[in-house]
């Protein structure tokens, strides 16, 4: 952050230096027995704290309007406190009123400027919070993650699907879904126990998410049904991906002598997430019927 504020720091150093030169030019030094230790301590501390504020602002804020207000407000305070400290060491002639004005005027002005900057900061923070809240609803909400498979669940799928449908329709792009279902999963649970069933599901979900692209969203739609959202993908491409996935999955079921899986790809042409998901269910039911007739392993 410091690099963004190089000119500002140079300017402040010049300002303070000019104040010092002006003071030395107009007044002359006091004797050491005229120093008031308590005053020096108090004013010195105030100056140090104000300098600290200046440092914090520079180190934590990017350039921008709010930063300018905050910075120059603090700088005026620092300037005023600096001259205040100097007059402990330098005595000015009584006819010279300029130095006492320079001492006392910048402080209240600086306070006002600083306050205005703080209000700006508050507004800015509110806007940022709003922006984050909207985005996190879609990108990150750990409450919606299914604890077993670490995939997002039904609720998230509905929300994201709705948003993607709207986006893709407005941009005239194709959106596809892959639906994967474990055939007769209840029988697996019954034969091998619930623990084995759970382990199988988490294995399956890992395989799924590792064989899809980064842009695809895999969700656990129901107990034994997964849906992958393929943004910006037309049906032929989805078909190729499904073929590829089928090969991978058939290896899994051969290795573990696991249950049969049914995988269906479909293009989303519906207007709402709910009707799209209904269509996915129907496509799955149809696919199950036809595979049951053919008795063909996928």
């Amino acid at each position: 952050m410091w690099r963004q504020h190089r000119y500002k720091m140079l300017f402040s150093l010049l300002l303070l230096l000019s104040g010092l030169l002006l003071a030395i030019d107009t007044g002359d030094a006091k004797h050491s027995n005229e120093f008031d230790a308590l005053d020096i301590l108090g004013e010195g501390t105030t100056l140090l704290v104000a300098c600290g504020w200046l440092g914090l602002i520079i180190s934590s804020r990017p350039t921008g309007r709010v930063t300018e207000w905050l910075y120059y407000g603090s700088l005026l305070l620092v300037y005023s406190y600096f001259l205040d400290l100097l007059d402990e060491f330098i005595r000015y002639p009584d006819t010279m009123r300029l130095m006492s004005w320079l001492e006392s005027l910048p402080a209240p002005v600086g306070m006002l400027v600083l306050t205005y900057g703080l209000i700006g900061w508050h507004r800015e923070q509110r806007a940022i919070n709003r922006q984050l809240r909207g985005r996190e609803l879609f990108l990150r909400d750990h409450q919606l993650i299914d604890p077993l498979t670490q995939l997002y669940g039904l609720e998230y799928l509905q929300a994201v699907l709705q948003r993607e449908i709207e986006l893709h329709q407005s941009q005239h792009k194709a959106l596809s879904l892959l639906v994967l279902d474990v055939d007769n999963f209840a029988a697996v649970n019954r034969r091998h126990g619930m623990a084995a069933g759970d382990a199988y599901l988490s294995q399956l979900s890992e395989l799924l998410s590792s064989h899809l692209r980064y842009s695809d969203v895999v969700c656990r739609y129901a107990g034994d049904r997964f849906i992958a959202l393929l943004p910006n993908t037309a049906l032929p491409q989805a078909h190729i991906m499904a073929q590829h996935l089928r090969q991978q999955l058939s290896q899994l079921s051969v290795e573990n002598s696991g249950p049969q899986l049914t995988l269906v790809e479909m293009a989303v042409q519906q207007d709402s997430a709910i009707s799209a998901l209904q269509a996915a269910d129907q496509a799955m039911a149809l696919a199950k019927k036809t595979t049951a007739l053919k008795l063909q392993p996928i």
């Binding site: 409450q143 077993l148 669940g153 039904l154 209840a186 649970n189 019954r190 619930m194 107990g223």
Partner: peptide, 17 residues
């Protein structure tokens, strides 16, 4: 502890078996 809506459904099956 868990946000897992499937829990009661699974528990029913687990009890049965």
């Amino acid at each position: 502890q868990l946000n897992s809506p499937e829990l009661p459904y699974l528990l029913g099956g687990a009890l049965l078996n």
